[in-house]
């Protein structure tokens, strides 16, 4: 599903990722941990083709960094759901419109849009708030809207960059429940986080970024 081979990323001459190898199967749930600035976001950006590696190969689904043409990128992104810490909701439109937007982009029929959006909102438990504006929602609710939007095109991969970074423990738990549910339905989830408590509560495979290298880690049990 996702494969990285000897990937190097440099910013201003500094190697943020220094020969990263990584593979992820479809339907897998993987945590990406590491300190702030370790390059977690850069690694995710590689995967939604917002960043090109200086060297190495990135393969997402059937697309390769080198083979992919600029105009193919939008179509590739439709197969990937991305969730951010800062939500990236459109502040000037309602919850419903925010989710529906992902369908306008993919040319979905009007009649189908309504059905799909209401379905997705029900999935994340926000049907009743469909006419609210994003700023009227709590952080956890906003993140759920983002997830509804990310999932509405039924992506095979969900990339989540610190999705609980701005949330209180209760909301974080809700988001984790949602992510688990999504994963159970067959969507691969790669979640960057430095919230080790969550990782302990919802155990899965863990990879850690440290000094530009990626390694598999086992979480020590809390005593």
């Amino acid at each position: 599903m996702i494969e990285l081979e000897n990937v190097v990323v440099t910013f201003d001459g500094q190697r943020v990722l220094d020969g990263v190898n990584f593979a992820m199967k479809s339907g897998e749930f993987v945590y990406l941990v590491g300190q702030t600035g370790a390059g977690k976001s850069s690694l995710l950006r590689l995967m939604y083709f917002d960043l090109k590696p200086a060297s190495g190969r990135v393969q997402v689904a059937e697309h390769d960094t080198f083979g992919v043409r600029k105009r193919e990128i939008p179509y590739l992104r439709r197969k990937i759901g991305v969730v951010f810490q800062d939500f990236k909701l459109l502040e000037d439109r309602t919850v419903y419109e925010n989710v529906a937007f992902a369908l306008y982009v993919t040319n979905t029929k009007r009649s189908e849009i309504k059905k799909k959006v209401l379905h997705a909102l029900a999935d994340v438990g926000l049907s009743h708030k469909r006419n609210q504006m994003p700023h009227e929602l709590s952080g956890g609710e906003q993140q759920r809207v983002v997830m509804a939007r990310a999932l509405i095109n039924e992506p095979s991969i969900l990339l989540a960059d610190e999705p609980t970074g701005n949330l209180d423990p209760t909301s974080s738990a809700e988001i984790m429940e949602l992510l688990t549910k999504i994963n159970m339905r067959g969507t691969a989830v790669l979640m960057a986080t430095h919230n080790y408590d969550l990782v302990r509560l919802y155990p899965a495979r863990i990879v850690q970024l440290k000094e530009g290298k990626l390694m598999e880690v086992e979480l020590k049990r809390k005593k």
Partner: peptide, 16 residues
């Protein structure tokens, strides 16, 4: 800008 970024993120083409 934010709208444009979001559009790109969810796979909108340049023309769109």
């Amino acid at each position: 800008r934010k709208i444009i970024q979001t559009m790109k993120l969810i796979g909108a083409t340049r023309g769109f």
